[in-house]
Design a protein around this nucleic acid. Structure first.
Lengths: 350, 350
DNA sequence: GTGAAAGCGCTAACAC
DNA sequence: GTGTTAGCGCTTTCAC
């Protein structure tokens, strides 16, 4: 009997024939359905192994009306600065981890929210590929137009860090505000009284929460909030440098600078070095994200670890559960960040 | 007449009915095939617009026996250090650029070459999804086992930077060796006589070519090659720091250090700063890749820009052409890198 | 426990 | 130029 056909094309019919059963029974085995006699199952499994059979996913998708695809949407790093490469890779890693367990695949779709045809582009991608769910990364997740476009297709959607809670929407976020309050309290505990903050990109609501957390932290420790100690940034390295120069040329400069993300914090580190300030002896610096660079600069950056991989994993699992079990699922999940105290923060000078 | 059906489900039959033609004619219009009267085409197009029809890709794939998917395989950054996030994002960007034009989608598949089941995993992914082609990034592209596994499935394959030419395999690479010779000559032209080199990761053949280029450059300019000026690295930031310390503690240290990638070069920069050496006054430093960080460090890093996005674009186009036109295609393409002279290199001291 | 038959929505040959 | 007829390889009733 000819077993290894020239080019990998055994179908369910071949398996059924070789095993001497109907294709329906093969289908039951392949999909782990119940009601198959053990001996039949074994026969089929050995036929599958012998023929090297692998179900054709297009056929399966067509018949079952469900692709085994998860869509991941994020702002295109090529058109803009915002999502750093590391951020996106971690997102992808998390989704892929969760997909692997259930044999789903990941369809990535970087997009540009300034693009006029984005609605059409997204609708078209969703209706054609019919992913079983969409994961929408920040800051797209806080743009109502995009959220609505996706919801209108009827595809389940999980928002990542949208910066606000919404009862009827699946959401995964981290505790930006609380953890930033904690970092601020930590800086205060080192004796710092003039703690500056560099804000993040305007369009990014979750990053906005970090600023609120900074204010909470000041209040917690009885420090006064001063607008003089707040400079606007846009999450970019350059804006961090700019903000640092502005803060440090002050007659009464801060002794600690807390930036809303690591890229800006590294910018601060650089400016401090240029101005001859020693970190942390003369100035403490803290960031947010814990990008790879945070551990590579010298002194290593004190920052907050955002559990992106786990957030993306969790979001994917929400989608999978939404599709398989009809169980009630928690539709709002906070995965807490964690302080990473390294070398860039220390006791207040003098 | 009910036009906007509740849930986005117009099929080719609905369009045919509304336009008063057969489904075959609709198919012709959708696929831009010839032999359709202009008036018919218009009727169909308006029906498509009215019904908001979008072809179901699973059905199309099943019937036509070709998915519209490109597979991108690279070493999983989560399990190892080698491919940096920036590297992968650029690869993805290039593939996506090319895909967009022809409405293909990208399936990413990070994998671990140390994984025992990798062969099975890849074969299974390829046979199930049936991507129309695979792009294999370095260093996977120089691993014969992986290349063979993919070739055995019969799927067209393009290797990216495999470090060697092979007549019967589609390949896209950059001119690692030549451009590194050029960088070395540039350093020599600044008066440097003791130019050190930090080699890259062993398993990465294309990176090995960079070392050969360094030697070529020395020969071109009449300088002697000395083993004392070569230190082994592994592409990581840490290995760059380590190598720099080793080179600079020397009694007769180099005046220029050329690292096989930017991560290591940035490590050198850091060690130089710690040792109180001014760059480029006391020491020149050069890297390879032109990662984002190269522009963000101070002094900005002189390096070589590897045209990853264009390489990935080109690889994708090779695959598309292989599938559509039966034209002869160039099966080996070199996309040259380019020197980026910045602030970290200067005339030899003294 | 198992199977027969009818699609899923499209493309491909070939007839007209 | 256009339509008819078969599938592609699977899942899904529903009957046995």
């Amino acid at each position: 009997m000819k077993v290894s056909q020239s080019k990998s094309k055994a179908t369910i019919n071949d398996v059924a024939e070789l095993a001497g059963v109907s294709i329906k029974t093969v289908s039951r085995v392949v999909n782990n359905e119940p009601n198959v006699r053990e001996s039949t199952r074994e026969k089929i499994e050995s036929a599958i192994a012998r023929l090297n059979y692998r179900p054709n996913l297009s056929a399966r998708n067509l018949a079952s009306q469900r692709s085994h695809l998860i869509g991941l949407l994020y702002d295109d790093p090529a058109t803009y600065e915002l999502p750093s490469a590391g951020y996106i890779i971690e997102l992808q890693e998390g989704v892929l981890n969760a997909c692997k367990l259930v044999k789903y695949d990941l369809l990535i779709h970087p997009c540009n929210y300034r693009d006029e045809n984005l609605d059409e582009e997204l609708t078209s991608m969703i209706e054609q590929r019919r992913p079983l769910g969409i994961i929408l990364a920040a800051p797209l997740s806080n743009m109502p137009g995009i959220v609505k476009t996706i919801e209108d297709t009827g595809t389940p959607l999980v928002r990542l860090s949208p910066g606000e809670r919404c009862a009827d929407k699946l959401t995964v976020a981290t505790n930006d505000q609380e953890i930033c309050a904690e970092m601020t309290r930590y800086l205060a505990s080192l004796g710092h009284r003039r703690i500056a903050f560099i804000t993040g990109h305007q369009g990014h609501k979750a990053v906005g929460k970090r600023f609120e957390g900074y204010r909470d932290g000041l209040i917690n420790t009885g420090l006064n909030f001063s607008e003089q100690l707040v400079v606007e940034g846009d999450n970019s390295f350059g804006s961090g440098r700019h903000a640092a120069r502005q803060l440090l040329k002050n007659s009464n400069p801060p002794t600690a600078i807390f930036a809303a993300n690591d890229d800006m914090a590294v910018g601060v580190l650089l400016v401090a070095a240029q101005l001859g300030l020693k970190v942390p002896e003369d100035l403490s610096v803290a960031g947010f994200d814990d990008i790879a660079l945070a551990r590579q600069v010298s002194p290593a950056l004190t920052t907050i670890r955002q559990p992106l991989v786990r957030m993306a994993e969790h979001a994917t699992q929400m989608l999978i559960r939404e599709n398989t079990s009809g169980d009630e699922i928690q539709n709002y999940e906070i995965i807490p960040g964690k302080l990473q105290i390294r070398e860039s923060t220390g006791p207040v000078p003098g």
